[in-house]
């Protein structure tokens, strides 16, 4: 399985990458860790004439904590996230999610930014980015812009990254006070991708009630989606197991569920409720 021919560029700065992308227009595609793109190239399901390999751009690497936020470079690999003690201290779900992505070799090369830009309907990071209210930083020919996670996942395999743009970093605000996070995934036994995955963030107020909560679902529909009805049912309430179970029943309301030979639409709809409950219970416990 040999990909079609392409021209290859390996810029060392974001500016250089952006001008290469601009120069080649529609023909060019960004190559990051290659763990979604190279399989497609090998099957010749995609044959971009030009690849711009951003893997050598140092400024896209690394994980930093500053001013109440965590900034994850687009090129941080799943393994970088898995083994970042600092990040694990702030958001345990980042570590937990990384460990259930693919296998160690996939995690050593696949990148956080690549997974978000690719917007795979069964990818794990899109749900986490939505639940943690992440902000994506993009650089394009017209300079920098930011896109909230809520606006980033547009459709199947379609994110807000425009042709010519590079996703440079992802900023995640660290909530104040008591909060907890959890990611619960039902993995496909062969591919390892999420049949259903649910990420939850629960933030407690001084009165012990749920001050804010965000729940996001992946794997079940064409793109990662928030479970807003579930969130609304919990905000301002004293959380109990019963209340969470009730709220989780509303997860997936109005969603366009996927069905395939492994999991039918109604099975996925059911899993969404079960995994929403688990993720919320996990986040609630972590917040206490």
């Amino acid at each position: 399985m040999i990909p079609g021919e392409f021209e290859y560029y390996a810029p060392t700065s974001v500016q250089e990458a952006v001008s290469l992308l601009q120069q080649h227009g529609e023909d060019a595609k960004v190559l990051a860790g290659g763990h979604s793109l190279i399989p497609l190239l090998k099957l010749r399901l995609a044959s971009p004439p030009v690849l711009v390999d951003i893997g050598r751009i140092q400024e896209l690497k690394g994980i930093r904590r500053q001013n109440g936020a965590v900034t994850i470079g687009a090129l941080a690999t799943h393994a970088d996230i898995e083994f970042s003690e600092d990040l694990r201290g702030v958001f345990p779900l980042m570590h937990d999610t990384a460990t259930v992505i693919g296998d160690p070799m996939v995690r050593n090369l696949g990148t956080f930014g690549g997974a978000l830009a690719h917007a795979d309907p069964a990818g794990d990071w899109p749900a986490v980015a939505l639940a943690l209210n992440a902000t994506m930083r993009l650089t394009g020919p017209n300079g920098e812009r930011t896109v909230a996670a809520d606006d980033f996942f547009v459709d199947l395999l379609t994110s807000a990254v425009e042709p010519g743009e590079v996703l440079t970093a992802v900023e995640i605000p660290v909530p104040q006070g008591k909060y907890g996070t959890s990611y619960q995934k039902f993995s496909h036994p062969a591919s390892g991708y999420a049949v259903v995955g649910v990420a939850a963030l629960v933030q407690m107020g001084a009165d012990g009630a749920c001050q804010d909560c965000r729940v996001a679902i992946t794997g079940a529909g064409p793109k990662a989606t928030r479970a807003t009805a579930t969130e609304d049912a919990l905000k301002g309430q004293q959380l109990t197991e019963e209340l969470i179970a009730q709220a989780a029943e509303q997860a997936g309301n109005g969603m366009d569920f996927l069905g395939d030979i492994f999991a039918s639409e109604s099975y996925r709809a059911h899993l969404v409720k079960v995994f929403t409950k688990r993720a919320l219970l996990g986040a609630m416990q972590a917040a206490q």
């Binding site: 099957l43 309907p121 069964a122 199947l156 395999l157 591919s191 529909g221 064409p222 996927l258 395939d260």
Partner: peptide, 13 residues
């Protein structure tokens, strides 16, 4: 064999 996971949602889109 490989794209199956994405086929149904792709056709729908």
């Amino acid at each position: 064999s490989v794209g199956q996971r994405l086929m149904t949602p792709g056709v729908k889109m």
